[in-house]
Amino acid sequence: MANQVEPKLIKPLYDELQKERFVILATIDHETGGPNVSAISWVFAKDESTVYFAIDNRSRILENIKNNNLAVINMIANESTYSIYGEAHVKEERIKDVPLKLALVEISIKEVRDVMFYGSKIITEPQYDKTYDKVAAERLDKQVMEAMKKA
């Protein structure tokens, strides 16, 4: 159903954000003032109004958020495409119990909008494969997701 707007995550989106998944994050670039778009996968819905994501603490995304806290997560799920808009802030500069230097960012959701063009639906969602050591990737992914769940 195109153009539906909600103040929080609907159940299918909340459920999808209980596990690692591919999403697109848009922030405002701190140098150019233009859009900055990144693909991320360590994302977790703490509740229907809050989304966490983990990123390298040297990421440009952190400087962008510190200068302008508005952010959008674009997500393909539930046979559609959604923009999850809100205010972001760095919750933890360094996530504990994770071997990489990752920051935890919290987005307080202001609006969830179905942005799929009229008269269409998604029939296949994006999939990805880790291209480095599979065992190490699984271990790290589990550590990061568990840390976000505890936050």
Rank of each mutant, 00 (worst) to 15 (best):
residue 22 F to W: 13
residue 136 A to K: 05
residue 60 R to Q: 08
residue 44 F to V: 01
residue 82 Y to P: 00
residue 111 E to Y: 03
residue 66 K to E: 11
residue 92 E to T: 05
residue 103 A to E: 07
residue 96 K to A: 10
residue 25 L to S: 02
residue 62 L to M: 10
residue 115 V to Y: 08
residue 38 S to G: 04
residue 7 P to V: 07
residue 86 G to S: 02
residue 77 A to T: 04
residue 114 D to Y: 11
residue 85 Y to P: 00
residue 27 T to M: 07
residue 23 V to G: 01
residue 49 S to D: 08
residue 53 F to T: 00
residue 69 N to R: 11
residue 1 M to H: 04
residue 141 D to R: 14
residue 48 E to S: 12
residue 139 R to S: 04
residue 65 I to L: 08
residue 20 E to H: 11
residue 54 A to G: 05
residue 94 R to D: 03
residue 69 N to F: 07
residue 85 Y to T: 01
residue 69 N to H: 09
residue 102 L to W: 15
residue 30 H to K: 15
residue 75 M to A: 06
residue 100 L to A: 12
residue 20 E to A: 09
residue 65 I to S: 03
residue 106 E to C: 10
residue 23 V to S: 04
residue 81 T to K: 07
residue 58 R to G: 05
residue 70 L to G: 01
residue 43 V to I: 15
residue 74 N to S: 07
residue 1 M to C: 12
residue 101 K to I: 09
residue 57 N to G: 02
residue 44 F to W: 13
residue 50 T to W: 14
residue 35 P to F: 14
residue 39 A to Q: 13
residue 124 T to K: 15
residue 16 E to W: 12
residue 29 D to V: 03
residue 23 V to A: 05
residue 122 I to D: 07
residue 92 E to N: 12
residue 147 A to W: 09
residue 40 I to C: 06
residue 10 I to W: 08
residue 48 E to G: 01
residue 139 R to L: 14
residue 15 D to W: 07
residue 31 E to C: 09
residue 147 A to K: 06
residue 34 G to C: 05
residue 112 V to P: 00
